[in-house]
């Protein structure tokens, strides 16, 4: 089911499922509120990596925004788990740029892009659009 969904995803225009994973309630709400891409539909939000993996197992999203520093399970480990469950999931790391090496670590585990906190609604939209476009181009 998941792969069929993802196949339809990048450029074909079907609705895509988005999961937001961040330990900050403010950031989660901000992403949800400022999301201006009609094709993306928020299906889950999670306050840490562990909850995100659980939610993802039940209903795998097509696109995930992921914080790095979180309690219980951090973003790096979470990315690794999500990619194992669904290899073609698109993951955008959203984190403060204190340590580039950590961000690169998350990308090595399978994330697709990076957006630096703090971000504007426009930067968020552009990053997500680029994420979807990049997936389309790679095909």
């Amino acid at each position: 089911m998941a792969s069929a969904n993802a196949k339809a995803s990048p450029l074909t225009g079907g609705k895509l499922k988005l999961m937001i994973c961040d330990d900050s309630n403010i950031i989660r709400r901000k992403i949800e509120r400022e999301l201006q891409i009609e094709r993306l539909q928020v299906i889950a939000t999670a306050a840490n990596g562990k909850l995100a993996v659980e939610a993802f197992r039940k209903d795998p999203a097509d696109v995930v925004t992921m914080d790095i520093t979180m309690p219980e399970m951090d973003g790096i480990e979470c990315v690794e788990n999500l990619v194992k469950i669904k290899p073609d999931v698109l993951i955008l790391i959203i984190s403060a740029l204190s340590d580039k090496a950590t961000a690169i670590e998350a990308l090595k585990k399978g994330a697709n892009g990076f957006l630096c906190k703090p971000f504007t609604d426009r930067q968020l939209t552009e990053a997500l659009e680029e994420l979807l476009r990049g997936a389309g181009n790679d095909d």
């Binding site: 955008l92 740029l97 580039k100 961000a103 690169i104 990308l107 697709n112 892009g113 990076f114 957006l115 630096c116 990053a127 680029e130 994420l131 990049g134 997936a135």
Partner: peptide, 8 residues
């Protein structure tokens, strides 16, 4: 995605 990692 090349463009989304320029900042890091």
């Amino acid at each position: 995605n090349e463009k989304l990692v320029k900042t890091i």
